[in-house]
Design a protein around this nucleic acid. Structure first.
Lengths: 241, 241
DNA sequence: ATTCTGATTTGATATATATCAAACAGCCCG
DNA sequence: CGGGCTGTTTGATATATATCAAATCAGAAT
């Protein structure tokens, strides 16, 4: 596969956000839910371009994206930057910071977004008391590891068009999971950002889009994409080198 | 940076292995240590080429590498494979499987190796009782996420020689951490495996080695490497494109 | 020591992607 | 409504890496 896609679904931990199945953690008892309220997650909102956190910031909380979307990126001294992911509603970010208590990357809002702050200390306390929450947290972290390894596969062994196909299919699945159209959507990121994520230059991304359109696989007009033939997009990924 | 290297040190959880500071978890009280013994981690040994687990295997345990080393790799349907890491003594593998209860990648011994099996259920139970262990486990998972993102940066934005330099420096640091020479070591992996890890073909890896040698930065004779000039190797990584 | 096998190095060439450059389109703001 | 800005597309060309091929080397088995 590659970009193995949020395997089942990106359940988050944010109890008081109303994303239903997406955001509520598995099946907890009433008393467990009451405990969860202790998290009393603060909500904060962000506009396009706002930083949720920056590289070097002290770590205190994980963040559940309530609405909108973010990108995470690493900066290298010499100005190079690498987008490491695009996160959408129901997903958790900030996991990288647990390791050193300092944020290793930065998170930038791609559009108007609302985020629940989940103080990590409380999360740890609660997950000592609620085994289901503990397991949930572990799964979320592990899922991130699997996702990252999928991207390593993509970057290490796929060619440009395969990468773009994998990217589009991944978006498609994630939209579907949120009961949005799997075949028609708006991209919230630029060609340049897609390129950074996929390890390609923006011109290469643009050419790959154009080529898919010539082939009748997608319809693309700048930021709006329609997938005409999911199967052929899938097939792209298996063309190997 | 890139390949940010096990930030502080790869402390593991395996209480009854005697790797001293590497393998013992932080500072626990006597009673906590006694609890840890409940893990009663079984030790298993492996020869070069043996599988510790395969993709698709049911997940039960994490594994602490007691001695020797492993590689982990993902297989793609069409035969492509991507080495996702080389792990050495004191490091924990299997984290990717927590997500789905199924191993997402496979782990193969690179040499004679001994491994402590850490049943994950017990680990979760214990970490509910020993907050330090809980935190430790979270840090290990987070460290893996940071490591993976470093590799994404490497694969997404570095050229061949930079990648090899980053790889050698990462090995160097990890050997140093284990009180082995930071400048002279044997590679346990082939050019082909290095290539897979770095997203390059084996010939490209070989040429990069040769070029570093011509430049007087390293001395390389097939599997044995001596770094003559750490600073210049560092400098390679910042040459950007 | 000798042969065999697979890994590594090195060279010649092909190819995918980057780079440079220009035209074009969408959009904000006066 | 018309600049001007920024992002996108497209073309021409350069370049890094892959591919193909052959020679060499190292280590294992005999």
């Amino acid at each position: 596969m590659a970009l193995p896609a949020p395997a089942s679904q990106p359940k988050s931990i944010c109890s008081n956000c109303n994303l239903a199945e997406l955001c509520l953690p598995v099946d907890l008892t009433i008393s467990e839910l009451q405990l969860l309220d202790e998290l009393s997650a603060v909500k904060r909102s962000f506009s396009r371009g706002d930083y949720l956190y920056r590289s070097g910031d002290k770590f205190r909380s994980l963040f559940a994206i309530h609405s909108g979307s973010f990108k995470t990126q690493i900066l290298h001294e010499d100005g190079r930057e690498q987008v490491t992911g695009f996160q959408m509603a129901g997903e958790i970010i900030g996991l990288d910071a647990i390791s050193t208590d300092i944020h290793a990357c930065e998170a930038v809002a791609m559009e108007k977004s609302i985020v629940c702050e989940l103080p990590f200390n409380k999360l740890e306390e609660l997950s000592r008391v609620i085994p289901k929450l503990q397991r949930h947290l572990h799964k979320i972290m592990s899922r991130e590891i699997v996702r990252d390894q999928g991207i390593m596969l993509l970057l290490g062994s796929m060619r440009a068009e395969e990468r773009l196909a994998a990217f589009l299919l991944n978006l498609s699945q994630r939209y579907a999971m949120r009961d949005l159209s799997a075949t028609q959507f708006q991209l919230s990121m630029s060609r340049q950002e897609i390129g950074s994520y996929l390890g390609l230059k923006l011109e290469t991304v643009s050419r790959a889009f154009s080529h898919f359109q010539e082939e009748g696989i997608i319809l693309v007009k700048v930021r709006s994409v329609e997938i005409l033939n999911l199967a052929r997009l899938q097939a792209c990924i298996n063309s190997s080198r």
